[in-house]
């Protein structure tokens, strides 16, 4: 269905992120190269500490690489200033975190409106769009509640709405269901799946192979900061690391 010459939204070329820990150097990401096309649903898998979150932060321009280059929509973001990066991130990337990361002093709807403030949208626009997004995640009746008054699943749906505030091209979800039970997790995944069908590029970190297989079309396997393997649904998922065969699950 998809062609190889589709538009590349994210490209990493030999990206490294090193941290100094006393005398040691931690190679959190160590020479990663990849290309992600518009409309892809990508899963990043790997053991704890393998560099998944670091890679997400680099892709989302929250962090800058020690070495290598990152291209967002074909633009080399290493040439960007700190405030240009913030502007770019606010416009083109939507973050979803394991721990929801909502601001507790604000209502659900206000949380959704925050990213729009930084893009200079006026109150009327923000209201209109936040109402629509709260409707999309089916939380219209709870939009004036504070995050503390919402269940985990509801909070993550607010976070999804927030990630969509400025209509980004890419959604980065770092273990979005990690703090949720299977059933609420599935609801959250349905929303992400839906967004992907509408054309959003989604990059998701997960521990759960079943989740990856059920929703992603490409899985990047990370180990010690390196991409160890890339498996694709269209190739019947190949063999996973340690010889575990991963079978594709039927998408509904």
């Amino acid at each position: 269905m998809r062609k190889e010459d589709e538009k590349v939204v994210i490209e990493l070329k030999g990206v490294c992120k090193y941290y100094r820990m006393g005398d040691n150097i931690v190679r959190a990401v160590d020479g990663a190269s990849l290309k992600i096309n518009e409309g892809d649903f990508v899963a990043i898998m790997g053991p704890s500490g393998s560099g998944k979150s670091t890679m997400m932060n680099l892709i989302g321009s929250l962090d800058v690489p020690t070495k290598g280059k990152i291209f967002l929509d074909g633009e080399d973001i290493s040439t960007f200033s700190e405030s240009d990066l913030a502007q770019l991130r606010g416009k083109k990337i939507g973050f979803i975190f394991q721990s929801f990361n909502l601001i507790n002093n604000l209502t659900a709807k206000e949380n959704v409106m925050i990213p729009m403030i930084f893009q200079g949208h006026d109150l009327e626009d923000r209201n209109f769009r936040a109402n629509k997004l709260m409707q999309l995640v089916q939380l219209t009746d709870r939009m004036h509640h504070s995050p503390g008054e919402l269940s985990g699943g509801q909070q993550q749906r607010v976070a999804i709405a927030r990630s969509l505030a400025n209509s980004p091209e890419v959604i980065l979800a770092d273990e979005p269901t990690g703090n949720l039970d299977t059933k609420t997790g599935a609801t959250v995944m349905d929303f992400l799946e839906d967004l992907n069908k509408k054309g959003k590029t989604i990059i998701m970190v997960t521990h759960d192979p079943d989740l990856a297989k059920a929703h992603a079309d490409t899985v990047y396997w990370l180990k010690d900061g390196k991409i160890e393997k890339i498996t694709k649904k269209k190739n019947g998922w190949d063999k996973g690391p340690r010889g575990v065969l991963i079978k594709p699950k039927e998408k509904k």
Partner: peptide, 8 residues
């Protein structure tokens, strides 16, 4: 959080 959603 503010920075992750685009705050300069």
């Amino acid at each position: 959080i503010m920075k992750s959603v685009g705050a300069k």
